[in-house]
Computed example of a mutant assay.
Amino acid sequence: MATETEKTFALLQTFSTLSIISSLGLGLFCFIADRLFQFPFIQQNDWLRALSDNAVHGIIGMWSWAIVIGLKKKNDFGEIILAGFLASVIDVDHFLLAGSLSLKDALNLPHRPFFHCSTLIPVVVLTLKFIMHLFRLKDSWCFLPWMLFISWTSHHVRDGIRHGLWICPFGKTSPLPYWLYVTITASLPHLCSFIMYLTGTREMMSIKHGIHIDV
């Protein structure tokens, strides 16, 4: 078992100066990317607009997870890429709902596709944790539910500035204020790290803090 001093140190590292600066950089990136996204040559081209929007989702997912794990090992970059993939792959449901590979059809749907229901996030995260516990998967994969949580949440919050959050079956919220979107996105890695700390996610504590915590 880790001592209380080690656990306290791990928690303090979650909110280290470097991680806070990285979060401020993430917020600044969101602001700059959204300003660039408004350029006419992007807005007037459906494919360029869609690819740019999806790329920003992916970068936010990668940046967010990089803050969580601290990028201390070479194999961390594999996790970063996976986080970006999870953050961007959600948009495939546009094509699934359209039943077509046509971008025009995917952008003109009768309603929002299923993966954009924010209620799905806690359901999938908890289900994944249960499955991993049930099948006694290795501790090295215990980060996966939290990676999915931060990647999907960042995607939904960014979409929320245009469409609000879809909390099925209760309906959707009003579009999120821009300042709230930036604030949530920048603070999300710290929220995720704190929850991981509270739930005793050992692999992440080992990678991020260099402390092996047995719980």
Rank of each mutant, 00 (worst) to 15 (best):
L144D: 04
S206N: 15
L36R: 03
T173K: 07
T8R: 12
R49E: 13
P122K: 02
W166Q: 12
G61A: 09
V182H: 08
A87T: 02
I207F: 08
P40Q: 08
G78K: 12
H133E: 10
Q43N: 11
T119R: 09
E203T: 13
P122T: 06
M204E: 11
L26V: 11
L144M: 13
I81W: 06
G70F: 04
D34I: 03
L12A: 15
K104W: 05
A186M: 10
P175T: 01
L101A: 09
W141D: 01
S88E: 14
P189D: 09
V123G: 04
S19F: 03
D53L: 10
E4W: 09
P122N: 08
F39H: 12
N75M: 06
I211Y: 05
V92G: 11
C30N: 06
A66L: 13
V215R: 10
I42R: 07
W141C: 06
S151E: 02
E79K: 01
P189Y: 07
V125A: 03
G171K: 08
V182P: 01
I81P: 06
H57D: 08
N108T: 11
I121V: 15
T183W: 04
Q43G: 15
L71S: 01
E79H: 04
L36C: 11
A83R: 08
L103A: 07
A83V: 02
K72V: 09
I211G: 13
M147Q: 02
R162M: 06
L176C: 00
I80K: 05
A10L: 05
I150R: 02
W141E: 00
V182W: 06
M204H: 12
W179K: 05
T201Y: 04
I131H: 00
Q13V: 00
G99F: 08
S193C: 09
K172S: 15
C168S: 13
S118M: 14
L120A: 12
H209G: 15
H156I: 14
T199F: 14
W65E: 11
T17Q: 09
I195Q: 10
